[in-house]
Design a protein around this nucleic acid. Structure first.
Lengths: 231, 231
DNA sequence: CCATGTGAAAACTTTCACAGCG
DNA sequence: CGCTGTGAAAGTTTTCACATGG
């Protein structure tokens, strides 16, 4: 039951893959699968089998040689790595626009031990209402509420122009980490982790990959044409 | 004006940073900044100055030695790299739940040359309505509409259990790329790029970083305590 | 003199190959 | 015998150092 690991020197890529493994393990558990090999987990997640083993070995030895991994056991270990069981992560949302509302409504997050306890906005029409039972407060109340409720994670879902102000207030309130959905890079104290997700950037990246894929297809076609021509 | 580049062998990390540079350049253009150095762009984006120069050098030589980069000129070049100007990217959304609606309502995407032209759902109450002027069709009509409108990008915003079906239908309709917001890995033909964004995974990652940051802080504090004790 | 652009070194990540164990 | 766990090799990315040119 020892899950001893120095939390340092673990690459972002490893953490991303660990999160993906966890999602797959949950799915497999629901399916009733009890044992799986690194190869199977690899093919489900798009990684290589060696990479799966390497990633897991950073945190401990969870498998049985000759057999593989116990799905439930490994899932429990990976959940522990992500802090599940240690605590219920209380979250708040700053910005109750369509994205903020969507984030609250998508209950995805509850499944992993996260829980929204408050939302904040500057719009007087929204203040005092509730979104899925979560009360919407004025931004002025943020510090008080975050401190009182001991909110751990602040989710920024405001326009880019207000993002930095939101981050500053959250930090002053003693937030422990920030998830930023505004298309604006955020700088706070080194001690507060900030993770930014820029949805429009994903569209840009995809359009690049599309162009590249289509360019490759054209190149291949050209090669086939040349080959058949020289026959 | 030459923007010649082999679109191959460019790392995902470089593309992500390029998208971030583009966001900053747009911001700087609005601010009225006309010239900037690699160092300034680096500090705005969190990369290093060398990395900025290395990234840009993959695509061409856009700067003036001793001076820096012309904001508008560089922005135009980077936009071209992402396919801006080449075409208006037509998008469709599969799944008009809160996330799908939020994606349509957040106009962020229009700014970069993307445009929603259709949405699809299986809910009879939604079919025939409009979300921000975008018509909602039945999923059965997807192939016809995507082909007719020559939709380039399909955005999946359905629950995990329906994601693969959605992807399959999109591919059959001749979509050129997929942006997947469902917490489910998607496998399609090698030729169709798929980019997945799993929001709940971001929460998990953040909780890991919070634990690590707090562990570090405790370790540092312990060292200070030890040091002062041995005095 | 300044900041870019770029080979080369350092650091890091992934893959390989196989020892070790159920 | 099969699959994990792991050092070492191969490959990739980042940083360094400096030549180059406005």
């Amino acid at each position: 039951m020892e899950t001893k690991y120095g939390l340092e020197d673990i690459s972002q890529a490893t953490i991303s893959r660990m999160a993906t493994y966890l999602r797959c393990l949950t799915y497999l558990e629901q399916q009733g699968t009890s044992i799986l090999s690194s190869r199977e987990l690899a093919s489900l997640t798009g990684a290589s089998a060696e990479q799966v083993r390497q990633d897991l070995s950073v945190f401990g030895r969870f498998g049985k040689r000759g057999t593989g991994y116990d799905v439930v056991g490994l899932k429990t270990e990976v959940e522990a790595i992500f802090g599940r069981g240690v605590e219920q992560w209380k979250c708040c949302i700053v910005g109750v626009g369509s994205l903020g509302t969507a984030l609250i409504e998508s209950r995805m997050v509850q499944k992993w031990g996260f829980k929204y306890v408050a939302a904040f906005d500057t719009d007087p029409h929204k203040i005092g209402t509730r979104v899925e039972r979560i009360p919407v407060y004025s931004l002025d109340e943020l510090k008080t509420v975050v401190r009182r409720e001991r909110v751990a994670i602040g989710v920024i879902a405001v326009p880019a122009s207000s993002a930095r102000t939101a981050a500053r207030i959250l930090c002053e309130a003693g937030i422990r980490g920030i998830l930023n959905f505004a298309p604006q890079s955020i700088k706070v104290s080194e001690k507060i982790p900030v993770l930014s997700v820029d949805l429009s950037q994903e569209f840009l990246k995809l359009s690049f990959y599309i162009q590249r894929a289509e360019q490759r297809a054209r190149d291949e076609q050209a090669q086939i044409d040349t080959a058949s021509h020289s026959e």
